[in-house]
Structures are given as C-alpha cells and as structure tokens.
C-alpha cells in the first residue's frame, strides 16, 4: 500500500485497515487500507464495478438497509471502530452524511426536506428550524433560488437543484463527514460545475469523500485521489501527483484512458 508523503497538518478523520467486504459468497472488496484526512476532499476513482461505491457506503453502513452484508477488518472514525458492537448506527449516520448518485428528495416540500433531519432529532421550535433550514440552503448555494417557494414540492425542481437540496438536507443535521456517490452523474455540465464549486466551499468545515467516474472532476475538486481496481486499492496519493506522476503503471494507464 502506498500512502501520501507530503506533511499533512489536518488530523486523520477516517482510517481503514485491512478491510474486506462481501455480499453473500461474493467478495467485493479485499485488503483495503487507507487514511482520510479531515477538511480535505478525497476522491475515489476506478472503472465501474471496482467496488468504489460499495466502499463509500461502508462509512455510514447504509448498505445494511437493503441486504445482508459482511464487513471485515477495521474502519475507524476519530479512532472509534464503527463496526464495533456497541456503536449506534443511527447516530453514525447523523455524523456521516451522504449524497446519492441520483437526487432523492422526499415527496415533500423544499422546506420539509431540509427540516426532516433536525425534526428526527427532536427540534420542534419553528424559529430554530427556520434558521437551520436557511443556513443549510445557503451553504448548499440554493437559498436565493428557492427562498420564495419553500412550501412548494421538491419534485418540481430541476435535477441540479434537487441534488443541491439533497446536499442541504444532509448539511442540516451538521455532519462531520459528507459522502458523495457520483453526485453529478445525473446532471448537466452547468449543474455539475455548481456542485463542484460547492464542494470547494464545504471542505472548509467538512471531511468529504467523493466517488466519481469522471477523472477531470476528481482532478478539479479533490486533494487526495485513490484508484481502485477489482476491489483493491492500487494507489492513493495527492491528487496532483496521481494525475502527473503516478507511481504505479496501472494508474497511469487508467487516467490516460488506456483501459477502464
């Protein structure tokens, strides 16, 4: 395993050691170890089917909603193993927010979508809720577009707006980590660039892990890039190094488009 070598001032937020993932008899990830630093953007790239989305979903254990899965090894957030018996999965998911591949707003109003999370944790006071909703929408660069139609249904928004709404929704519960699973794959270039700008602003206060199939996007938005292939980590380094002087031949072949 190859790790980045630059002196890093930010602490390690997520650490993965010798992790394996299987779904029934099928092994999807194996022998993974890497560190993710706080207030940095880490991009995960690789050909489809390499397990990068699966890897992402291990950080908030969301794959457990749909199926019986088996995770081995060790994943820690701030030094605490998130697969340990005593951990509260629900609280973990509050701390580790997620934005999905396709925008998935609830069939409710814009306001109710953002207020959904705080309400889960018992926030009832209207003024507090209003404040949280506005704050989250501003952080997601959506406030000015929707402030006059907060009561309208979220399903009437454009795809890009819906995705930023989902980001606002995730931000409203004040997460420490934001997982983004190909957040722009369903969006047009303009909406994509808005989301990319947003990622740059959000990393001031958040740890961001983004899975993307778009290498230019990884180059634009991330500080670190990890390259996955067939369920294994091939190389992880500072993004500029991965894209200029990768140490593994396979990485170079992939980013120059020779396979994948």
């Amino acid at each position: 395993m190859l790790t980045p070598t630059l002196p890093e001032t930010k602490p390690i937020k997520l650490s993965v050691r010798d992790m394996a993932f299987s779904y029934g008899p099928k092994k999807i990830l194996d022998g993974l170890s890497l560190d993710i630093h706080a207030e940095r953007v880490t991009a995960i790239i690789g050909p489809s089917g390499c397990g990068k989305s699966t890897f992402l979903k291990c950080f908030n254990r969301i794959h457990e909603v749909a199926a019986d899965v088996n995770v081995g090894g060790d994943i820690q957030i701030d030094g605490v193993d998130i697969y340990r018996g005593g951990i509260d999965v629900v609280d973990l998911r509050r701390r580790v927010g997620m934005v999905f591949q396709k925008p998935n707003p609830f069939p409710k109003s814009i306001y109710e979508n953002v207020a959904f999370g705080p309400r889960l944790f018992g926030v009832k006071d209207r003024a507090t809720l209003d404040g949280i909703v506005e704050d989250a929408l501003r952080k997601a660069a959506l406030w000015d577009e929707v402030k006059d139609r907060l009561k309208e249904s979220a399903s009437g928004m454009s795809g890009g707006q819906q995705q930023r709404l989902c980001i606002a929704r995730a931000l409203a519960v004040n997460p420490e980590v934001l997982l983004m699973d190909e957040p722009c794959s369903a969006l047009d270039p303009i909406a994509t660039s808005k989301i990319e700008d947003l990622i740059g602003e959000l990393k001031e206060s958040l740890t961001i892990v983004i899975v993307t199939h778009n290498m230019q996007q990884a180059a634009r938005v991330s500080d670190y890039t990890a390259f996955f292939w067939l369920g294994k980590l091939v190389e992880m380094d500072l993004t500029e190094r991965i894209f200029t002087t990768p140490r593994v031949q396979m990485t170079e072949d992939y980013i120059t488009g020779r396979f994948g």
Partner: peptide, 19 residues
C-alpha cells in the same frame, strides 16, 4: 447568517420508540 446549530443527539425516546 451564522446560526447556532444545535448539537443533534439521538434522544432516548427516539431509541425507545424505534425498539
């Protein structure tokens, strides 16, 4: 615009209700 975001803690009742 800086809102004091409350600390979101999972309340005991929400756990109990879920159970």
């Amino acid at each position: 615009m800086n809102v004091a975001v409350p600390v979101f803690r999972r309340s005991r009742t929400s756990k109990v209700v879920d159970r």
